[in-house]
Amino acid sequence: MKHFSIEDVFKGFSFTPAERALVEDKFKTLNLKKGDAVLSAGQLVPYQYYVAEGCLRAYYIADTGKEFTLQFAVQDWWISDYTAFFAEGHSILHIDCVYDAVVHQISKASMEQLYKEVPQIESFYRIKMERFFASFQRRILSDLALPAKEKYANFLKTYPNIEKHIKNYHLASYLGITTESLSRIRKELARGK
């Protein structure tokens, strides 16, 4: 079991012993197994999660039953249904454990308290959210403009070590293509086309 380490999560920031104790007290460590559900649609979303090890997947299920993968969260990534988390509402996303993971969860109320008592935490989250927003915008533009082969190449750059751990239909739903198209792209790349 990987214990919470303030240095692992808040890289580049220094804390007094009192701040360290306060921050460490606000996080809870969870050990997840492949297939464990972290969040289901319709639930309130009081937490966000920092992935210390493993991989989680956030996805949406349409009324037709089709799944759309929004995000994979690997080591050093954060994940939640952020729309519901910040609005203190009900989730439209599901989050499952793709392969065994250790995550550290923190509630919105705990985050708000840390913002007030440990100012560099607020700076950290602001920087993280700015990067997340920029990344999310790039992903949307990629989905709108790039051919499937380039989307797949971008996926491999973003997530270099998880392809062998995820199901083909999860990857295809992330890329917005069919599993048949994914197989075709892999074959073309293997042949050097």
Rank of each mutant, 00 (worst) to 15 (best):
H3K: 14
S5N: 11
S5L: 06
S5C: 10
E7T: 11
V9A: 05
K11V: 05
F13C: 07
S14P: 08
F15R: 01
T16F: 01
E19P: 05
E19G: 00
R20I: 09
A21R: 15
L22Y: 13
K26E: 08
K28I: 15
L30R: 04
L30M: 11
K33G: 02
K34F: 11
G35R: 02
D36L: 00
D36Y: 04
D36W: 09
S40R: 14
G42H: 02
Q48I: 06
Y49W: 12
V51W: 05
V51Y: 03
E53K: 06
G54E: 03
G54T: 13
G54S: 05
R57H: 10
A58N: 11
Y60G: 09
T64C: 10
T64Q: 11
G65R: 13
G65H: 04
K66C: 12
K66P: 14
E67D: 05
L70V: 15
V74L: 02
Q75G: 01
Q75Y: 00
D76N: 05
I79H: 07
I79F: 01
D81C: 14
D81H: 03
T83F: 01
A84L: 04
F85K: 06
F85Q: 01
E88C: 05
G89S: 07
H90M: 09
H90K: 15
I95S: 05
D100I: 08
D100A: 10
A101D: 03
A101E: 10
V102F: 02
V102I: 00
V103I: 08
M111D: 06
E112R: 01
E112M: 07
L114S: 09
K116G: 11
E117I: 07
E117N: 12
V118H: 12
P119W: 14
Q120F: 10
E122H: 13
R126W: 12
E130P: 10
E130Y: 12
S135V: 05
F136P: 12
I140N: 01
I140Y: 05
L141W: 07
S142H: 09
S142F: 04
A145D: 12
A145H: 15
L146V: 00
A148V: 07
A148E: 07
E150M: 02
K151Q: 07
N154V: 05
L156H: 10
Y159C: 02
Y159A: 06
P160G: 14
N161V: 06
I162L: 00
K164F: 01
H165N: 14
N168F: 09
N168W: 11
Y169P: 09
Y169I: 13
Y174N: 13
L175W: 13
L175H: 02
I177R: 11
T178M: 06
T179H: 13
R184Q: 10
R184S: 12
I185G: 02
K187C: 05
E188I: 07
L189A: 08
R191K: 15
K193A: 15
K193F: 13
